[in-house]
């Protein structure tokens, strides 16, 4: 979506401010917010792309004023409500009024190490389907502007680049963000001349490399 998350190339946000000896968390609640999101996600009621879309689907003024974990908590609340896993009233009070429906298994404490170490791989079997664009192909990104989730940044829509890596056959985020994890497409690293994207703000010869799925691309 053309939402507040699509930050690349925007102006006016000021300098990058790095904190010396930054702690992993800045308040005790941030620890629990991170853990709640990871643990609830591992219960399998939404895909990672659904959680990304829940975070970006936020009024821009809120998105830009909330801290990172505030954005995560807002999205977690919305995902729970949308799926009927909790009500607004339950979330506000912390008091359970309806039990969870049957068939949902939480991530058990003694499985955390194994589950995190295994991760959730996103590559799939292409079942004989070959990539449409071999290495070195000149491709043009499509001018896609869906209301839903997409991983094609607005700064590289309608731009010409070159396929420099074929990463594999990966779950397609646009459909994964609608809950369908069964669809995958070839994923490429496409390299653009920075000046083709950002004009003379960019230095001659600098490049930008973006991971893009086949449905985002046409042969040039």
């Amino acid at each position: 979506m053309n939402g507040p998350q699509d930050a690349g190339g925007r102006m006016g946000f000021g300098p990058v401010e790095a904190e010396v000896d930054e702690p992993v968390f800045h308040a005790p609640w941030e620890r629990r917010a991170l853990a709640l999101n990871v643990a609830a996600g591992a219960a399998g009621q939404w895909t990672i792309d659904q959680s990304r879309h829940a975070r970006e689907d936020c009024p821009p003024a809120d998105y830009y004023s909330f801290s990172y974990y505030q954005i995560w908590m807002r999205a977690l609340e919305n995902m729970l409500v949308e799926r009927g896993l909790a009500t607004r009233d339950e979330i506000a009070t912390g008091q359970m009024q309806q039990p969870l429906r049957a068939g949902i298994t939480p991530l058990a404490g003694d499985r955390v190490a194994d589950v995190l170490a295994a991760g959730f791989p996103y590559d799939r079997d292409p079942k004989g389907q070959a990539p449409a664009y071999p290495l070195g192909t000149r491709v043009r990104t499509r001018n896609l502007q869906p209301r839903g989730h997409i991983r094609l940044p607005s700064y590289c829509r309608g731009k010409v680049g070159e396929v420099t890596t074929i990463h594999g056959y990966h779950v397609f985020p646009d459909t994964s963000a609608e809950g369908d994890k069964s669809i995958a497409h070839w994923l490429y690293a496409v390299t653009f001349q920075a000046r083709d994207l950002f004009g003379d703000r960019a230095a001659e010869g600098d490049t930008v490399c973006v991971d893009l799925w086949e449905p985002y691309l046409d042969a040039e």
């Binding site: 609830a40 908590m73 979330i91 912390g94 404490g109 955390v112």
Partner: peptide, 22 residues
């Protein structure tokens, strides 16, 4: 966040031991 943790633990969507381990 405390309210959310209590709610999700009570519902059985998250295991408090998993939160600590994460």
């Amino acid at each position: 966040v405390m309210a959310m943790e209590k709610l999700l633990v009570d519902k059985g969507l998250v295991d408090p031991a998993a939160l600590d381990a994460i």
